[in-house]
Amino acid sequence: MGIIEAILLTVITAATPLVIAAAGELVTERSGVLNLGVEGMMIIGAVCAFAATQATGSPYIGILAGILSGTLFSLLFGFLTLTLVANQVATGLALTILGLGLSGQIGEPYAGQSGIKLPQIVFPVLSDIPVIGRLLFQQDLIFYLSIALIAGIHWFLFRSRAGLKLRSVGDSHTSAHALGINVIRTRYLAVMFGGACAGLAGAQLSLVYTPQWVENMSAGRGWIALALVVFASWRPWRIVAGGYLFGAVSISQLYAQGNGFNVPSQLLSALPYLATIVVLVLISQNRRMTMINTPASLGKPFVPDR
């Protein structure tokens, strides 16, 4: 295995949870809801996936548990912000605090256990293609899901009727309501989808990335996912680009260090964050693009008139 191929493989593993969580949040935000609780849903997904895998011995049941727990947890956010119109920023932060505490509590008996790694699914023939074969066709289920998710979301948002409705809810909930679209229900579904994705991303952490449970193991990745959504200016495929770019920056600094590259390691560690800021600035320069894609009623509460 060549060094480039090896680096890319590491990047893919590091980027996959970011891509999945960001994809879910993208759909949530497209419906006009800003859920800052991604970190909390992710860590809940991670601990539930790990616990279910240890209990049943099947990482696939673990994946389901991760998705389900993330969805349930997001419902808490949905109930507060959609039904009770609580402030979305505060509720999202509260969700993260609760998620970190709750996951620590659930995970206490599992600390220090060695988990079961999600097996690879190898596509015959395709996996023999040089470089690409190893990178794209010898991966685990969650990686394939991440790509399918992005393609599916792209199709859903821009090719399907339901996606059109969802976008119209995000752009102007009052007009969407006037057109007879059930704004609250649409948003509930979008929030739940976001939760499911964050839970899946969490499952990737505790089943693929590092098959174990460690408190706070999401280590800020939920926040990076949030940044990715804006980075991608709410376009699904750009999430993949952004996620892999971010992964590449944070991984390559480790490789650079191994080569005796002399820069303060703190600066290298800060690079991904600085890069994100720079890209955010560059993207927001293109006013037309951001205006078209930004959900206009993002973060604004909706209460139907009766």
């Binding site: 605090i97 609760l98 998620g99 970190l100 505490g101 709750l102 509590q105 206490e108």
Partner: peptide, 8 residues
């Protein structure tokens, strides 16, 4: 952790 859940 219970403390943090309680705060949440």
């Amino acid at each position: 952790k219970v403390v943090r859940v309680f705060q949440g």
